[in-house]
Design a binder for these strands. Structure first.
Lengths: 191, 191
DNA sequence: ACTTACATGTAACGAGTTACATGATTGC
DNA sequence: GCAATCATGTAACTCGTTACATGTAAGT
């Protein structure tokens, strides 16, 4: 059985409450912003496999044609097993840093644009995370999740915030360094 | 032509100096630690394509059977084009944060172990980055790379350091939060 | 009526890893 | 002589995205 990662994510979302495939993906996209993603092309085949294995069951939803999925007891056991497996290390591929590493080919101005882009993305991420924070608090307030669940979710938001603030600080530091490089290059070419 | 990413990386390494496929991969693995990776299964097919397109040329290496590749002028032009394309955003998949987000299923102790693991990886990364810093300085000292090249490379090292220090700070903060959660859980169950 | 969001699914493609197969050179 | 490192390459497999096809329901 392939891709225990997607299946883990699906089972995990269903551990909070029953949901349609569409809603599972929405939860993943909205709440785990910046550290998880699933496409429909992954979600639906995964759901079929989980149903076949008896880990989730389908009830008909309010909307015709929509299928609300719930975790079975076996499904919860399996989820626990999957959660206990060590996280698979993501293969790192940072296009910005690759370009910066070979910055001399493009020169300092192009690199500054690159870093400025990274800085902007970090700021956008902070704004998004602030929105997630509000959404989690709201869901706790109206009883959608309990205090402990909110606590865990906010810990992941905090991880994103730490990371984004670090990216911001690095970008500012690096932008300053690139300005110095630009001046040095100017001095060399005018000499 | 597929995977401009791998080709970009190969061309970029060759912009520093000619190298064998094996050495290209070693450079990527050693110097771009933590933010890039290539496997032989990617590198060699990419090299074949680049040769066919006339972007790199092969000279026989010192060792029989080894092939030293150099960038052609067309290759350098193409590298510039590729460097100018915006970096493709990496699909985010953080297994640790996914597990933590649904931490209630496993409980605070298991989550603490998870976060402790992340903390350890951040510390390992800092040690590796310190080693890269030393290696870059050494290569600058013996003329393998010039001052500007060293400068760009150290900027990427700094990015890793900022990120790792952020991970460390987050892990400590979160570990403290999980301790409080554990105590709360104890209080609830003993009640 | 029309647009937007909800909802499900598949097929083709692209990208990447792992495992395997093979062999040369260097240092001990 | 033997182990480690250097070196090249391929095939099978997994994973994941994108684009497409299809239809319902709710709001304006």
């Amino acid at each position: 059985m392939p891709s225990s990662q997607t299946e883990l994510a699906v089972l995990a979302v269903l551990s909070i409450r029953p949901a349609t495939g569409y809603a599972i993906r929405a939860t993943l996209a909205e709440r785990l912003t910046g550290f998880w993603s699933e496409s429909f092309g992954q979600i639906y085949p995964a759901i079929s496999r989980l149903q076949a294995a008896g880990l989730v069951v389908a009830d008909d939803g309010a909307r015709s044609g929509s299928v609300v999925l719930s975790l079975t007891d076996t499904g919860r056991d399996h989820l626990l097993d999957l959660l206990r497996t060590p996280p698979v290390p993501a293969r790192p591929r940072n296009g910005t840093l690759l370009r910066l590493f070979f910055g001399q080919v493009q020169g300092p101005e192009a690199c500054a644009a690159l870093v400025a882009g990274a800085r902007q993305r970090a700021e956008d991420q902070l704004a998004e995370l602030a929105a997630v924070r509000v959404a989690v608090e709201a869901e706790r307030a109206d009883g959608g999740i309990d205090d402990d669940q909110a606590c865990y979710q906010l810990m992941t938001v905090s991880a994103g915030e730490h990371s984004a603030r670090a990216a911001l600080a690095w970008a500012d530091e690096t932008l300053a360094g690139l300005t110095r490089l630009t001046e040095r290059t100017r001095a060399r070419t005018s000499r």
